[in-house]
Each structure stands twice: as C-alpha cells, then as structure tokens.
Design a protein around this nucleic acid. Structure first.
Length: 420
RNA sequence: GGAGAGGUGGCCGAGUGGUCGAAGGCGCUCGCCUGCUAAGCGAGUAGGGGGUUUACGCCUCCUCGAGGGUUCGAAUCCCUCUCUCUCCGCCA
C-alpha cells in the first residue's frame, strides 16, 4: 500500500508510476472519493463530540432532568450512528481500490512492460562447451538416478520430484554454504513457518490479487507460503523497532509452495518449475534512506553466492511493467542453463520500500517520530533451480558432475560419478 | 481432542455502566540535587485517523486481543472469533 498523501499532494507521481506499469486508473475519481470520505468522517466526529459532551452532564443529573437530557441526546446519537456507518462504508470503498494500487516504481527501474524488456546489467562466467554440456538435468537425473519425476507424478501429480542420493547431499551442502556465507554479514538464520494467516499474505502484497497462486487450507484458514519472504516480513508486523537496531538482516530457510496456475505447458520438463521447493531467502528491514544501497548489497550477496559455485550468469534490471505489486525495483540473476540454451531466473531481489511495512505496520523510532521502515528481499539460494544449474553446467563429457570447490567441505565427494 | 484460567500502555498491574486512554509500580527521557558509576526530588513518556497551522502547536475522533450487539453513555454487560497459560489425552 502506498502513502495516501501521494494521491492528495502529487497525483502526477502516481500517474507516472501507473503508466510505467501499464495500468490505467481514474485517479481523479479516487481523489474525489478520498475527499468525500474525509468530509463525512469529519462531520460524524462532530456529532460524536457533541454526544460525548452531553454524556458528561447526564452523568451529573438525576430524575426527570436526566430523562429529558437523555431523550435530547438520543437524536444526536442516532445521527452519529448513521454518519459513522456512511463514513465506514466510504472508507471501505476507497480502501478496496487503494490496496490494489501497486508500489510506486523507482525512477531507475527499467522501462517496458514485458519480461523481455529487462535490461542486462552484467554478465559473468564462461558458458560450458556445448559439445560437453549436452544433457539436461532430466537426462542426468536418469543416468545417475538422483532425480525421479515419474514416481513423483504417480504420488503427487505433475510438477513434483524426488531428489535422491548425491542431489540431497548437495541440497544440504548449498544450505550450509549459504548460511556460512551470509552469517558474517549479520544475517540471522531463521527457519520460518510455512503456514500463515491471510494477514501475512495481505501485508506482503500477495493478497488481494494472487489468491489463485497460493495453496490454501480452508479447514484451518491457513495458507502455504510461496516464499519465506512472507513469514519473514510479517515477523515484525505491528512493531515499533528501535532505530539503533537497524538494519535487521535475516536469512530464512523454508519450503515454498506454488500452485503455478496459468503456467500450463510452460517449463514442463524436469523440476525447473515445480509446486514445492526449498529456498533460502535474505530479508532486510532498514531505514528509508538506506534502502537503495541495501538493495545493491543484497544483489552483491547473490552474485557472491553464484560466483562461488562457478555458475555463469547475467544480472538484469526488471522492467517496470513486469514488477510485482510490492516492488519498486527488482534485480534478477539469470543463470545459464545449458539444457535450455538460455539464461533463466535463479534469484530475484526487490526493494519494496514502505509498501509492505505500511500494511504490516512496521515502524522505527526516529528523531522525527515513528517512521515506516523499508523492507527488501532477495533470494539467497533457490535450491531446486540451483541444483539444475549446477549439474547442467558442471557435467563432464563422461556424464560425471564436478562439485564446486566451496561445497567440498560439506559433502564427502568432489565429483558425482555415474553408477557402475 | 477434554477441562479450566486469562488477554489492559515498553513491562508489571488496578479498574465490573458515566468526567477512564485508563490508578499505582517498574523501565526510559529531560531537569534539579548529591563529591563519587548509587540514592533522592520534579516533569515527561501508547498507537492511529481527521481538521487547522509556513512551522512550534492547537482542536477532535478511534483504539483496553479482534469483530459484532445492548445503552444517551462500555475497558466494564451480551454474542462470535482468536491467542496465551495450566492439567489430562495424543504425538515427532
């Protein structure tokens, strides 16, 4: 949710932002509704003040005098009740439209509406020789027996997978590697809840809007998170943080659940796009003035992690029209996937400025009073896709897979050999 | 799952229909005092919305777990929900 004062004081800023996102909206009508609701609220409050004032004297009176005073103020009470109901109704109507407005786009976000409009910022690493990296992760999985998609389909349906043997070892090695890399920077490791209330999804900007992407458990009124960003952001909801403790940094581990509705026929091969995967996520709460540099910092940590694993990648500045509703700006790292012969997203870091903190009511004490913090998130390691990138990029001509140096201390093998 | 007890300001804790956004204590901030990292004295100290002001500020409304209801008036009465704690059961 963005600041209402934008609507009142600088509607042109709002208009520009919406236009960059490719959204059309009658801003003037919204502004009028906003004015009206305030007018009605104000007159309701006047009645209420009158009623309260009368109540004070009633408390002093007795007998007939009291009865007369009560009947006099009853009319005021009735008027207040009606005015309040109208004000509430107008608020609700305004709110319903206001929550749908996405975050203001950062001026430095890339222009355009589509995924393809993202601007490439850097490129790192050397793509493997196509003559060597000939097998995709599904083939490698079958040869090695460390990935079983058929049985997963039998048990759970499409878009699931069993990871087996060395791939499991690699998963936990990646987790260790991420924690060991990030903890020195002050990231506090967290294992988060994966079942949350709707409020957490609302607060992070997924609701309203993305209901069809989220698994729900209606019997308990809970939802499965698609990313630990949700549980991490909501962790400090309704809190006023001490400014001296900022920035707060967390690195969360959780399984992520995504319905992937509307992606039929897209990325159907292997485990590139699945309903369930594990992910390590960075999250930071910081002062507003620090969020741009925090965003760069998160991107730097992501690059550090990818580079350590020797995976070739590029960084893109995501186009305004392709941003999620809560993001003002977003960088993706796209790894080279030999099996697809192109770069695909393996991390994503967003500066959500005060969009989430306003909804979640996360402030900090400053000299100027209580201010909303800024929140930022960034993938540390999305395990599934990183495993694919690893095995596809580091496969050898004979089908074996070299384990990157940085993982050696976490696994008891430095190469995955084909089974005899 | 069964039985019971509770959710009040940063924390503890009073308050069972009227001048209560709320006694008291702790903590914290500022000032005073004190020759010794303490004690004492005084003042201040919740969040949010709206109006007004260049601004300091002033006015006003809402919030005592959440949402409804009764009433001229609710922290206090009624209903629903929710969370926490204790005991029993079950359980990784």
């Amino acid at each position: 949710m963005i600041d209402v004062s934008i609507l009142r004081n600088s509607p042109d800023v709002l208009a520009t932002s919406l236009q960059r996102r490719g959204i059309s909206l009658d801003i003037e009508a919204l502004a009028e509704l906003d004015q009206k609701r305030r007018r009605v609220r104000s007159s309701a409050e006047d009645l209420r003040a009158e009623q309260k004032e009368a109540g004070k004297s009633i408390a002093q009176l007795e007998g007939d005098e009291k009865a007369a005073a009560i009947s006099r103020v009853a009319e005021v009470a009735e008027g207040y009740k009606n005015a309040l109901a109208e004000a509430d109704e107008l608020d609700a109507r305004f709110e319903a439209q206001w929550v749908l407005i996405p975050n203001l786009v950062d001026p430095t976000a890339a222009d355009g509406l589509e995924e393809e409009d993202a601007v490439e910022l850097t490129r790192w690493g050397r793509q493997p020789d196509p003559a060597v990296a000939v097998r995709d992760h599904v083939e490698l999985g079958e040869m090695h027996g460390f990935l079983d998609i058929e049985r997963a389909a039998k048990v759970s349906g499409s878009r699931f997978g069993y990871l087996l043997g060395p791939l499991v070892r690699l998963e936990f090695a990646l987790v260790q590697y991420a924690l060991d890399t990030l903890e020195p920077y002050g990231f506090v490791p967290v294992v988060t809840p994966v079942l949350v209330r709707s409020n957490a999804l609302y607060g992070t900007g997924f609701f309203p809007g993305d209901e069809d992407q989220v698994y729900s458990l209606p019997a308990d009124d809970l939802y499965l998170v698609g990313t630990s960003e949700v549980s991490l952001a909501a962790m400090h909801g309704d809190e006023i943080l001490d400014g001296d403790t900022l920035p707060l940094r967390y690195v969360g581990f959780s399984t992520c659940f995504r319905r992937e509705s509307g992606t039929y026929g897209k990325d159907t091969r292997g485990i590139f796009r699945v309903h369930q995967f594990d992910k390590i996520e960075m999250f930071s709460f910081c002062k507003p003035e620090d969020s741009p540099q925090t965003h760069d910092f998160l991107l730097a940590r992501e690059e550090e992690l990818v580079q350590g694993l020797e995976i070739p990648y590029r960084v893109v500045n995501v186009a305004a029209g392709d941003l999620g509703s809560s993001a003002a700006k977003k960088y993706d790292i796209e790894a080279w996937f030999p099996g697809q012969n192109r770069y695909r997203e393996i991390t994503s870091t967003s500066n959500t400025t005060d969009y989430q903190s306003r909804r979640l009511k996360i402030r900090y004490k400053s000299d100027k009073g209580n201010e909303l913090v800024h929140t930022l998130n960034g993938t540390a390691i999305a395990v599934g896709r990183w495993l694919i990138a690893l095995v596809e990029n580091l496969q050898q001509a004979d089908g074996s897979i070299v384990v990157p140096e940085v993982l050696h201390k976490y696994v008891n093998f430095d190469r995955i050999e084909l089974p005899a």
